[in-house]
């Protein structure tokens, strides 16, 4: 983990309110699947850095999928090439890169960049409409309006394919409410081998502020440092 300066080298709309932003850092350790970085805009006064999955990395160049949600993301998606960023990363634990079945709703696909295009992995990817899906190759798509793939909820799509889910690792990412809904819908066999990467409001991102804890069977754990990936059965959502 290091703190370094990054410069935006590309910023393009990817889908809906998601931008694909590429950042060339001065130096960066190689991240593992599912790790994240904290991003700040140093020239814009005090604000907490924000956590984003490292979608792709090639040497010092990081790609993020950034969805407009609040103050900082609204600013980030408007930033021009050349804007300086503060980058702290890579952070958090990571997914094993063994073959996996992946359930990604909306911008959480950003946690699984390393699995996209792999023949040994299966990706379920859903969003509100086809315009909210970034252009990737997934195995099964769902949209709430039926504009692409299964019409309805991603979890329901996943359950229709339950019989095809073999013993591979099962990975899911997203806000706690989505993960809770998923856990409540699946059977114990799946739950026992499912790992979930959680989103959280973070202060520091590297384990010191204790601001992002979630409740687990072993007490409060820091999403940033003890996660972001937790065994689903450990979580008390």
């Amino acid at each position: 983990m290091i703190e370094t300066q990054g410069i935006i080298v590309s910023n393009k709309p990817a889908a809906g309110s998601i931008h694909r932003i590429e950042v060339e850092t001065e130096r960066m350790e190689l991240s593992k699947p599912g790790q994240f970085a904290m991003i700040g805009i140093p020239d814009e006064g005090f604000h907490l850095n924000r956590p984003f999955s490292i979608y792709k990395q090639k040497e010092n160049r990081l790609t993020f999928l950034i969805q407009k949600r609040g103050m900082i993301t609204s600013r980030l998606i408007k930033k021009s090439v050349g804007t300086k960023l503060r980058i702290i990363g890579p952070l958090g634990n990571w997914f094993s890169d063994a073959p996996a079945v992946i359930v990604a709703a909306g911008s959480s696909i950003a946690a699984f960049g390393d699995f996209i295009g792999r023949k040994d992995s299966t990706i379920f990817y859903g969003a509100a409409t086809k315009d909210d899906l970034i252009d990737i190759k997934a195995d099964f798509f769902s949209t709430m309006d039926g504009s692409r793939g299964f019409r309805g909820n991603l979890i329901e799509l996943f359950m229709t394919k339950r019989k095809q889910i073999d013993k591979r690792n099962l990975y899911i990412a997203g806000p706690a409410a989505f993960i809770k809904a998923f856990r409540n819908r699946i059977d114990d066999d799946l739950a026992n081998r499912c790992c979930a990467s959680l989103e959280a409001y973070m202060g520091c991102g590297f384990g010191v502020c204790l601001g992002c804890v979630i409740n687990t069977k072993s007490g409060y754990r820091r999403v940033c440092k003890d996660g972001t990936i937790f065994s689903l059965k450990e979580l008390l959502l």
């Binding site: 907490l48 503060r86 702290i88 010191v208």
Partner: peptide
């Protein structure tokens, strides 16, 4: 500030 930019 230890949370924001420790390296600085």
């Amino acid at each position: 500030y230890n949370f924001i930019s420790p390296a600085s």
